[in-house]
Amino acid sequence: MTTSYRGSVWVMLTPAVALIGVFILLPMALTIWLSLQDWSTQTGFQTARFIGLDNFLEIFGTTSIGRDFKGAFVNTAIYTALSVILILPLSVGLGLLVYQRNVAGGNFLRAVLFSTYMVPMIAVALVWSKLYSPSEGPFNQMLGWIGLGGQPWLSSPGTALISIVFLNVWQQVGYFTVLVIAGLTQIPRSLYEAAWIDGAEPHQQFYAITLPLLRRTLLFSAVIAVINAVQVFEPVALITQGGPVGSTNVLTYHIRRVGIERAQGGLGSAMAVTLMLSLIIVIFALFAFARRKDEE
């Protein structure tokens, strides 16, 4: 029996492994290799010339290349941190709201929340750019109703990045809410019943039972939210073009501009490697944080 399907292993695995190998793993290895080369994206890989760590010195240096990259790096870090800080608590709150009413109303709410995740980011960006419009947009009109002054939103360096964070949170929070609901269903009912009998108040139940038992779900959510956040591209490419004055220049947009549009493949690859290393560090830090909490 064992021998009869030995050959089939390779029949079954070859399509997926070959495709992922050629179109993801090979480019990954090439990105690392190219980060150490002087190479134009318009020429073949054989024209690459080894220059050691020069690309990295350049992107962390004091020239305009270094300034732009460091700006994009900081913007991406802020954008990512704000997204995660807003999405995680919101998803827990919304998850509890849906799960509390595990009936028709809850399912409807879950569907409405999740539906925004189906909307193409490009449409989200277009629609929100009009909602944010300082004069003809409804957001400033609504702020006026409650006696607040209008905001410049996407048109000012001080508010543009956070405005993009908001539209990202709006689009993604439903997905993370569904993850939280999945986590909540794993918590044994008996724990709440016992706490209830002991006279624990709702907020005590939340901190003593719900939050600790959601920790692994929240760790997973945080990792996914970080990976999603560094991919922000459409609102920047379409609406702000990195501006005003570089305030929304984020890494996915910047790396593509340098590596594809300006064809500086070596520099772009060094930026991509830096992004990947930073992601690995952040993800390890999240896991370490979760583990320390587990040991407490």
């Binding site: 492994v17 480019p27 994206t41 073949g44 593509r256 594809i260 493949g265 991509a272 992004l275 990947m276």
Partner: peptide, 24 residues
């Protein structure tokens, strides 16, 4: 090992491989 290697690609933002992929 092979499964872990494939799954790891799930966590790779597409921008990281975009430049060589475009060339390939």
């Amino acid at each position: 090992l092979l499964f872990a290697l494939l799954i790891a690609t799930m966590f790779l933002p597409p921008i990281v491989t975009l430049i060589p992929l475009y060339r390939i």
